[in-house]
Amino acid sequence: MNSADMVWILVATTLVFFMAIPGLTLFYGGMVRARNVVNMFMQCFATACLMVVLWYVAGYSIAYGDGNGYWGGFGKLFLNGVTLDTMVGTLPEILFFAFQMTFAIITPVIILGACAERVKFGFVLLFSGLWMLLVYAPVAHWVWGGGFLSDGGIFGDLGVRDYAGGLVVHQTAGLAALVLAIVIGPRLNTNSNPHSPGLVMMGAAMLWVGWLGFNGGSALAADPTAAMALTVTLIAGAASSLSWLAWEYVKFGKFTLVGMVTGTLSGLAAITPAAGFVDPAYALLIGAIAGMMCQEAVYLLRRFGIDDTLDVFAVHGVGGVYGSMMIAPLGIANWTAQIGGIAIVGAYTICVTLVLIFFCKGVVGIRVSEEHENSGLDKVLHGQRGYELLT
């Protein structure tokens, strides 16, 4: 056991949890209309609580158990065999479990932005729980848990490279969000602006702070790789914020607060798979391109009439896949492995997500009534309003 490594991963675990609650919760809450802010807060917080329990019960075993190349198995259900003495590298396994839990929390929460303002609360919980167990956990096993996409798997000695979640987190969440948005259909009124740009900015700032633990902690050690990952996370986020602003001004003649911080998240998603492999100059390039690329993806989806309410696919899906591909030109990753990994993870995510959507729809329904959507979900579903003076 290395005490320095342990202290750093304790801090990183706290930072990544901080990303979901309160970071992503505030970001999403500010993006929706005032009449739906409590509903958005409820979805994020309740989903996070559910993921904690499910990761303990079965998620960790599926992702990091000693099964086979495709499935971790059930040998570590309820942390069976995990004690204070069992180790993962230089860390107590219980700490590794907690750090990986925070990734399993935030990934389903990211998806919620795609179906905001029109989906039933019961559907959110049922779908999120099944999706984490049947999509996120198996993919984490394939890439990070010694599965068939990792070194020694189907791509040989040099397997898929995903430092902190470009495929495992951002591609899976982004594609699931896209499928969900298409199946559910657009809101009755899509001509709305974020009700509180200030909340959006505060949430984004918390996400950026938390992302230092997300990427820096993925080294699983207090070492130079962690320091570089943290540094390039700052650089890519800043570069993407500025490039989004510049491109937005070229196209629309305005600098918007929500646009700037959406650019921040685009750069952070793009640097995530590469953070432990690239230097600051390359991170600057990744971030600068991500700001413009993800912005174009936002408007492309809108032109096709796809109401991904909070731009989950354009930011996380496009950013994560783009960042994963940007590793290959450096020779750090194999082109075949990266493209193959993206294709396999993408196909699996889309297929299982579709099955889960229709299963959950049959069990609890999926969409609220037109009357409830028009009146807002806060009072209807939760008996509360975020702002009591507003109707």
Score class of each variant (00 low, 15 high):
73 G>R: 04
145 G>S: 04
181 A>L: 00
43 Q>P: 07
126 L>M: 08
258 V>E: 05
200 V>A: 13
361 K>P: 03
37 V>Y: 02
344 I>S: 10
146 G>D: 03
243 S>Q: 05
135 V>K: 01
110 I>Y: 02
272 T>V: 09
117 E>S: 07
195 H>M: 11
69 G>K: 10
372 H>F: 04
254 K>A: 11
24 L>S: 07
9 I>V: 13
58 A>P: 10
215 N>K: 01
310 L>C: 10
82 V>E: 09
233 T>A: 13
196 S>G: 11
357 I>E: 08
105 I>G: 04
43 Q>Y: 12
44 C>Q: 13
345 V>Q: 10
123 F>M: 03
362 G>E: 05
303 R>L: 02
251 K>R: 15
82 V>C: 09
376 G>I: 04
170 H>L: 08
348 Y>C: 13
116 A>E: 03
113 G>C: 06
279 D>T: 07
249 Y>F: 14
281 A>T: 13
144 W>Q: 02
343 A>L: 15
130 L>H: 13
42 M>Q: 11
82 V>S: 12
158 L>E: 13
296 E>R: 14
324 S>V: 02
143 V>Q: 00
111 I>M: 12
19 M>S: 10
93 E>H: 07
48 A>N: 05
191 N>C: 07
9 I>N: 05
232 V>A: 04
106 I>N: 06
356 L>W: 07
94 I>F: 08
156 G>Q: 09
211 W>H: 08
291 G>N: 08
130 L>F: 11
368 V>Y: 03
336 T>W: 06
32 V>D: 11
313 F>I: 12
312 V>K: 01
185 G>S: 00
185 G>K: 00
359 F>W: 01
215 N>M: 05
65 G>H: 11
173 A>I: 09
16 V>K: 04
257 L>R: 07
149 L>T: 06
130 L>G: 12
299 Y>K: 08
334 N>D: 15
23 G>C: 12
35 R>Q: 15
345 V>W: 10
315 V>P: 05
278 V>N: 02
29 G>P: 14
44 C>L: 06
38 V>F: 09
67 G>C: 06
189 N>L: 06
150 S>R: 03
361 K>G: 01
317 G>E: 05
388 E>F: 13
331 G>S: 04
219 A>K: 00
54 L>N: 06
326 M>D: 02
288 A>E: 02
5 D>S: 13
307 D>R: 05
256 T>S: 15
43 Q>M: 15
13 T>Y: 06
158 L>C: 05
288 A>V: 01
317 G>C: 09
210 G>Y: 08
233 T>N: 08
341 G>C: 09
111 I>K: 01
353 T>F: 14
145 G>D: 01
103 F>D: 03
171 Q>G: 13
161 R>F: 08
204 A>M: 13
254 K>F: 08
62 I>Q: 10
153 G>Q: 09
22 P>E: 11
37 V>F: 02
184 I>F: 03
14 T>C: 14
205 A>F: 15
238 A>M: 14
73 G>Y: 08
